[in-house]
């Protein structure tokens, strides 16, 4: 549950960011992000909140594990945890912005 999931910011709207998680578009909240982000940045997300902007030169290494995991079958536990982290990000757009 603390594994989190990285995603690429597509757009920022106040306290909400549109984030691309390996091809899945979701909304994540920016209330507790460590520094400001903009489109193109990668962020680490946990239970629907971005908690860290991932420095550019470290993105590839961070993504590797998740790319392996997301190729896994539905019933793999660690893969399922990553998928539920993606599901933790809101599907719909147009949130209040907190």
């Amino acid at each position: 549950m603390c594994l989190g999931v990285p995603g690429r910011v597509v757009a920022v709207n106040g306290q909400i960011a549109q984030v691309d998680f390996f091809g899945v578009r979701r909304e994540t909240r920016l209330d507790v992000i460590d520094e400001p982000v903009q489109a193109g940045d990668y962020v680490l997300n946990h239970v629907g909140f971005a908690i860290r902007r991932i420095p550019d030169h470290e993105i590839e290494e961070t993504l590797a594990l998740y790319e392996v995991l997301l190729r896994e079958a539905e019933n793999d536990m660690m893969a399922a945890d990553v998928r539920s982290e993606i599901d933790a990000a809101q599907l719909h757009s147009g949130g209040s912005g907190g």
Binding site: C2, R29, D31, V32, H46, V47, G48, F49, I51, G98
Partner: peptide, 16 residues
């Protein structure tokens, strides 16, 4: 439930 990583999310909604 959850450790500090998860409690942060609870805190964020509490203040909102």
């Amino acid at each position: 439930s959850g450790f500090e990583t998860t409690a942060v999310a609870t805190a964020a909604i509490a203040v909102a």
